[in-house]
Design a protein around this nucleic acid. Structure first.
Lengths: 153, 153
DNA sequence: CTAGGAGCTCGAGTCGGCTCTAGGTCAAGC
DNA sequence: GCTTGACCTAGAGCCGACTCGAGCTCCTAG
C-alpha cells in the first residue's frame, strides 16, 4: 500500500487548504480530525493526503454553516468505524435541510433588496431625466414611509 | 397629519419584531435607527410605526448577513436626507452581490452534501439488500479515501 | 403602603471561531 | 557560534452581536 508518499507539514497544509496554522491546530484540538494527527521528529505534525481530503470536506461543511461541534460529532462517527452509517446520514441530512432553508431565507432577502435597488434606480433615473425640465424632485427611496414591503411584497 | 396613532413601548416593539428589548436598546446605541428614538414620560422609549418599519428592513438585512456597521452607514445616509441616493444604491447593490455570492457558495456546498447523502443512502440500501445473501460489506461512505470530490466533482 | 411589572443606564459576561503572544526546540545556512 | 525560520505548547485576546445583572425610577392594583 503506497501511503506515505504524501506527508505534509502544517505549513504546507495551511497553504493548500487556506486555513491558518493556528486554525489547523485549533481544529485538531477541537477533535475535528478523524484520526489523531501523526507526529514527526521533534513532535511536529505530519499530515497525510487523507487528512487533507477530510479537511477539504470540513471546510465545505463549515462554509455552509456547520458548527465545529457538529463537525466533531461527524468525525467521531467516522472514527468509530462501520456501523453508524445511519447516524452519519442523519447528520448530513439535517445539515442539508439547514442549508436549504438558509438558501431560502437568503433568496427572500434578495427579493427585498432587489426591490429597494429597483426603487433607487428608478428614482435616480427620473432625477436624471428631470434635469432638462429642471423640476426638483422629492427624494424618497422607500425608506421612511409606508412604501416598504414588510410583508406585503 | 395622523402620526401619533402608533406609539409603541419597547416591549411591544420587541414582541412584534421578534427582537429582544436588549437588542433594541443595543441597536439604538449602535446608531441603527434613522431618527433618535423618542422618549416619553420617565425617559421611556416611544417607537413609531416608522421605526418599526425601518426595523423590519433592518432585520431582513441582518438576516442576509449585513453587519451592524453597514446598517448604521445606511441609516446615516437616510438620516442625512436627499442627495446621497447613489451611495445608498451602491450600498444596497454591494450587499446584494454579497448575498448572491453567498447563495452560490451554499448551493455548491449543497451539491457536496447531496453527493455524500447519496453515497450513504446507496450504502445503506445495499447493506439492507445484502441481508438475505448474508454477505458482510466493507463500509465506506466516501469519508476517508480518495473517493471524495474535492475539486473533481 | 407595598408589591409587581415595565422601563431605565451602565457595564460585565457569553459564545463561536479563530488569532496572537510568549517562550521554547530544532535544523540548516552563513 | 549565531541567526533565521518553521514548528511546538499553553494560554490570552479579539470580534460581532447580543445577553444578562445590578441597582434605580415609575406607575398601577390590591
Amino acid at each position: 500500500m503506497a501511503e506515505d508518499i504524501a506527508s505534509l507539514s502544517i505549513g504546507q497544509v495551511a497553504e493548500r487548504t487556506g486555513l491558518s496554522v493556528h486554525a489547523l491546530r485549533f481544529y485538531e484540538q477541537e477533535g475535528v480530525f478523524v484520526d489523531p494527527v501523526r507526529r514527526g521528529p521533534g513532535g511536529r505534525r505530519v499530515y497525510s493526503e487523507n487528512d487533507v481530503d477530510w479537511l477539504t470536506v470540513c471546510i465545505i461543511l463549515r462554509a455552509s454553516g456547520m458548527p465545529l461541534p457538529a463537525l466533531r460529532r461527524y468525525a467521531d462517527l467516522v472514527r468509530a468505524g462501520v456501523g453508524n452509517e445511519e447516524e452519519r446520514l442523519a447528520l448530513l441530512r439535517e445539515h442539508r435541510e439547514h442549508v436549504t432553508s438558509q438558501i431560502g431565507r437568503l433568496t427572500q432577502c434578495l427579493d427585498l433588496i432587489g426591490f429597494k435597488v429597483g426603487l433607487y434606480e428608478d428614482l435616480l433615473d427620473e432625477a436624471q431625466r428631470a434635469i432638462e425640465p429642471g423640476r426638483p424632485r422629492p427624494s424618497d427611496g422607500g425608506d421612511a414611509p409606508a412604501s416598504t414591503p414588510g410583508t406585503s411584497a
